[in-house]
Nucleic acid binder design. Structure first.
Lengths: 355, 355
DNA sequence: CTGAAAGCGCTAACAT
DNA sequence: ATGTTAGCGCTTTCAG
C-alpha cells in the first residue's frame, strides 16, 4: 500500500520495511559507478527493488549532491533568450542534457557582465558541475572574478582566447559573404557587425573586410548598431544619412539584414537589385523572405558545447572546436533566382493576377 | 588571507576562526525569515561578517535545501526552445527569477508528454519548489501521473481547465483577426491553427470561426499542419491542392503565415491583394515583412506566470489570468498601407530606381 | 553478504 | 546573547 501522503519515500523507509540497513538499500538502488559491488542476496535485492517500486521511491538528488559534491547540474548563460540564434543553441544543449539526465540552470545576462557575475555566484551556490557561456565579451576575462572556484567553463558561439569554446568558423563566414557579393559584381560593401564585444561579428567582419581589400575594393563600412531588426533599421538610416548606401550588404543576423533592407527599400533601394544582401544563421524566416544567408549548425553547436563540458568533467582534456558554415543563395543577393515569399523587386504592385 | 584553495569555505570554518558556534554564524549570516532573531553582540556580528567576507563565504544552497525542503528552484517546461514565442515567454520568467534569486531548471519536451514526465521526475528529484509548464496538451491531465507530489503548477501560454494558467485572450484574438479581414471585404477565410492539442490555436480558431459565421460567411477552412514556416508552406500547398485558396488568411504564428504566403505567392496569389494575411505574436520579423499581426505581451506573460507561482508558494490562492491582445495592421492585409521591407505586391520587378 | 558509524553543510528547537 | 543537540537523505569507509 503506497501510503505516503505528502512526503517522498526515503531509503530509510525502504530499509525499515525490508528489514535491512540503509547502506544495503543504497548499494542496491544506486550502485556506485566505481565500485559496482552490488553484492547482496538475490532475495534481498528483489525485496528492496519491490518495496522501492511500490513506495514509488526516488532518490533525493540534493542529498546525493551534498554527499558526493557532484550535482548533475550545469549552468548555462545566454546573452538574451528571445532570439532564434541563442534559443537554438540552447536547444542543442538541452538535447544532450536530457540524454545524460543532467539538469540545466539557465540564466539570461542581457550581455551585462555584472549581471552575469551575480547569477554565476548563485549558480555556484547550487554547486553546478560546470558552466556553458554564450555571452562572452572580447577583452574581458569570462567570469574572471570567480576563477578560484575552479568550475569548468566552456564557451559557445562566442570565443575567448582564455577559454575552450565551440564556435562557427566566423572568419570563413565573412570571407564567404564577401566573395559571394564580389562575384556578383558588387563593389561598395558594408557590414553590420552587431556589437564590438562579440567575437562573432568581429571575426566575420575581419574575414569580410580582408577579402574585400584583397579584391581591391574600398574598405567596407562597418556598422555596430547591434543584430536585431531595429538595429538593422538604424544602420540603414545611418547609411542613408551619410549618403553611402552600399551595393553589397552583409549582416550578422538575418533579422538585422531584414531590418536594414526594409528601410533601404522605403528609400528606394531595392534589395537584390540595388543592394545585394546576405545574412547569417539561415533561420526559417530567411527562407520565407528569400534572404541569402550563411547557415551555421546552431543546434549542433549547442550539443558540442555540453558534450565537451561533459568530457572535461569526465577528466579529459578538451580543445576548442570550430564548426563549418555554408552559404545558401537566394533572391536577396541574386535576383535571377526565383522569388518565393516576398519579392525583393519593385515597390509599386501591378494589378494582381487572377486567382 | 583568503587561503581557500579548492574548497568553498563553510560556516564551520568561520565559526572556528571567530571562536563561536556554527549556530551563531548561521543566525548572523542567514537570518531566518520568520524569526529574525539575529541577536548577537555587535562585536560578534562584526567579526563573523568580516571573516565571512575575507574568506569569501557563500552558503551552500544544496545544504540549505536539504534542511529546509525549499530549493529556491523551479522547473520550466517548454515545448520547444528555438522559437521566438516560447523563448520570449521564458525570458519573462527568467526576469522574475533573477529578481527573486531563484534558479530555473529548464527542459524542452518537444510536445511529447512522455518526455515531459521523465524530465519532471528528474526535476522533482531536485526538489523544485514549483513548475511552470508551457507545453500543456488539451485533453490530457498535465503531469497527471505525478500529482501525488503536490508541487504547485502554473501553466503559461496554453491553458488547461485543471490548472491555473496565464494565457492570452485567444478567443478575442481570433475574433479580432476575423473582424479585421471581414472589414476588408474578405469572404473566403482560412485559418492555420497549429496543432489540435494546443489551446492557443483551438481557442483562436473558435473565435475566428464564430465571428465568420456570425457575419454570414462560409465556415473558414482549418489547417492543422503546425505553426512553423514549413507548416505554413504545407498548409498553402494543401489550399492550392484543394483549389480553395482563401482571400483572408489567419495563422497562429507569424512564421507559419510567412511560410504560407511565400508558397501562395509562388503560385501567383499576391499577399495583401489576392489574400490578406494576419499572423500572431507581432514578432520583429512581422514588422520587417509588413505582416499584420496580433501582438501578445509574451514577456509579460512569462513574468506573470512566475509571479503567480511565487504567490502560490507564498501561500496565496491564485487564479488564472487572461492577457489582452492587440492588432497591428500592415500591408499584408491592407495594401493601402506603406510597404517597407519586402513588398507584397507584384512578382515581376520593374527597373530599379536610380540610387 | 551486510551493517555501524561518520559526515556532506546547514538550520532549528531547546537549552543556558 | 550564544551553544548543544539533532537531523535533512544519502554515500562511503571500515568491520564484521
Amino acid at each position: 500500500m503506497p501510503i505516503r501522503i505528502n512526503q517522498r519515500p526515503t531509503q530509510r523507509q525502504i530499509a525499515a520495511r525490508v528489514g535491512v540497513s540503509v547502506t544495503t538499500v543504497s548499494r542496491i538502488l544506486n550502485p556506485s559507478e566505481t565500485h559496482p559491488e552490488r553484492w547482496a542476496s538475490p532475495e534481498t535485492i528483489e525485496a528492496i527493488r519491490e518495496v522501492a517500486e511500490v513506495l514509488g521511491y526516488r532518490r533525493n538528488s540534493l542529498a546525493v549532491s551534498l554527499r558526493t559534491s557532484r550535482s548533475q547540474t550545469i549552468g548555462v548563460f545566454l546573452p538574451v533568450i528571445g532570439d532564434y540564434t541563442l534559443a537554438s543553441i540552447f536547444a542543442g544543449i538541452d538535447d544532450v542534457a536530457r540524454e545524460h539526465g543532467i539538469m540545466a540552470l539557465t540564466a539570461s545576462t542581457l550581455d551585462t557582465p555584472g549581471l552575469r557575475s551575480d547569477r554565476a555566484m548563485n549558480m555556484l551556490d547550487h554547486l553546478v558541475d560546470g558552466i556553458i557561456g554564450a555571452d562572452a565579451h572580447l577583452g574581458e576575462r569570462y567570469l574572471g572574478g570567480l576563477d578560484a572556484q575552479r568550475v569548468p567553463i566552456v564557451l559557445v558561439h562566442r570565443r575567448h582566447d582564455d577559454h575552450v569554446s565551440v564556435t562557427a568558423d566566423d572568419v570563413a563566414a565573412g570571407q564567404m559573404a564577401a566573395r559571394h557579393l564580389i562575384s556578383l559584381g558588387r563593389t561598395r560593401l558594408a557590414v553590420i557587425i552587431g556589437r564590438r564585444y562579440m567575437s562573432t561579428g568581429v571575426d566575420r567582419a575581419a574575414g569580410f573586410v580582408q577579402t574585400a581589400l584583397e579584391a581591391g575594393l574600398e574598405e567596407p563600412v562597418v556598422y555596430d548598431h547591434g543584430f536585431t531588426v531595429q538595429a538593422g533599421r538604424e544602420a540603414a538610416l545611418a547609411m542613408i544619412g551619410r549618403e553611402s548606401v552600399p551595393d553589397g550588404l552583409f549582416g550578422m543576423h538575418d533579422l538585422c539584414v531584414l531590418g536594414a533592407t526594409s528601410v533601404l527599400r522605403q528609400h528606394g533601394y531595392v534589395t537584390g537589385e540595388d543592394v545585394a544582401a546576405v545574412g547569417v544563421y539561415d533561420s526559417p524566416v530567411a527562407g520565407a523572405c528569400d534572404l541569402s544567408s550563411i547557415g551555421i549548425g546552431l543546434h549542433n553547436m549547442g550539443r558540442r558545447s555540453l558534450e565537451l563540458l561533459l568530457d572535461r568533467l569526465g577528466g579529459s582534456d578538451i580543445e576548442s572546436e570550430t564548426l563549418p558554415v555554408h552559404l545558401t543563395v537566394r533572391a536577396s543577393s541574386d535576383p535571377s533566382l526565383q522569388r518565393t515569399g516576398h519579392t525583393w523587386g519593385t515597390m509599386t504592385p501591378k494589378a494582381p493576377p487572377t486567382p
